[in-house]
Design a protein around this nucleic acid. Sequence first.
RNA 1: GGAGAGAUGGCUGAGUGGCCGAUAGCGCCGGCUUGCUAAGCCGGUGUACUCCUCACGGGGUACCGAGGGUUCGAAUCCCUCUCUCUCCGCCA
Length: 421
Amino acid sequence: MLDIKFIRANPEVVKAGARKKRIECDVDRILALDKEWREMSTDVDTLRAEQKNASKLIGSAPPADRPRLAEEQKKKKGLLAEREQALDLRAKELHELMLRVPNVPAEEVPEGKDDSENVEIKKWGTPRTFDFEPRDHIALGEMRDWIDVTRGARIAGSRNYFLKGDLSLLEGAVMRYALERMVAKGFVPLSVPTLVRSEVMVGTGYFPGGEEQAYRTDSRDDLCLVGTAEVPVTALHQDEILAVADLPKKYVALSSCYRREAGTYGKDTRGLYRVHQFQKVEQVIVDVASIERSIEHHRSIVANAEEILQALELPYRVVNVCGGDLGQPQIQKFDIETWMPSRKNYGETHSASRFHEFQARRLNLRYRDEQGTVHVCHTLNNTVAASVRMLIAIIENHQRQDGTVYLPAPLRPYMGGRDTI
RNA sequence: GGAGAGAUGGCUGAGUGGCCGAUAGCGCCGGCUUGCUAAGCCGGUGUACUCCUCACGGGGUACCGAGGGUUCGAAUCCCUCUCUCUCCGCCA
């Protein structure tokens, strides 16, 4: 959520930002409502003050006079109640609209309508030229008895799967390696709830708007399955005022992630590229409201992910996500796409976002600076490693003609010392 | 799932209808005293919105887990919900 004061002061900036993101947003309606609300609010506050004073006087009046005075007060209640109700209606409408105002994208965000216009800013490694016909992960999975999508679909519907044998172990190895690497960098590991209240989904910017993408329990509990550990981790300090000395907070969490993938029928149907459930190690940073520091963190969380891809000898590229492909909450986003031979292309494996205050304001996540002044925090996050897509990249890129797979050195300690599966 | 107790400021904790945005202690900040430290003394110390002011600062309103209700007036009474604790049951 943006600061209403910022919108008041920079309506054109907000409008231009929404245009760049291709998101509808009636800024003028918000400003009109805000103006109306403030006028009504002043009016209501004055009426309340009068009521309050009158009530206090009754308390100190001689008991004999009280019934008469109370009777007079009672007559005035209607007007206040009426105005309070009208004020409340404005406040609610304003809040709903505010929740939908997109964050203003950074200047460095390229113009563009969708992911086809994302701008490549870095490329590492060279896609391997095979001297045999490489198998895709499905074929490899069948050959080695590593993947069972048929039975996955039978017990849980399409886009569900079992990993078996060494591939199941490899999933654990990649997750563990990613987690430990981040812990070594000083990130605090967290195990998190993956079933959360919808207010947390609102707080992190997924709702309203992303309801279709989230699994939700029935009304007995009304909880949402998170699509990423970003949600519970970013919300960890919801409603808190942190001490500036404790910032930045750097967290890393391994969790299962659940995505409905509504509206993707027919897209990436084959294999494990797009699935309903996977494991992911996610990094989250909460820090002071400094654009410079956010940019610095943004670079570092991208670098953290790159290091892992390099250590796993996987070719990748980094793209600067364009306006039209940016979500409502982000200021800027860098996606990392890893080479996947079966796609004959790079496939998205990481997504690094900076939000400035957007999430923190919704989460009421603040800090107190050295002067004692309270500010809203900045938040950022990035994938460290997402299980199935990383597995696709590893087994497809490192396969041999006989169907065995070469394991890069960092994974070996987690695979019983083996260099091949 | 059953029975009971509770939720107050950074923390502990008082407050059962008006004198309560809230006693007190701790903590924290500023000052004084003091070889240093510690102790002591004095003062200050919530958040949000809004209005006035160039600003310093000041006024108003709201907030005592959340939402409703009763009342001229609610931290205090009533209802619903959420959470915490204790005991019992069940259980990974």
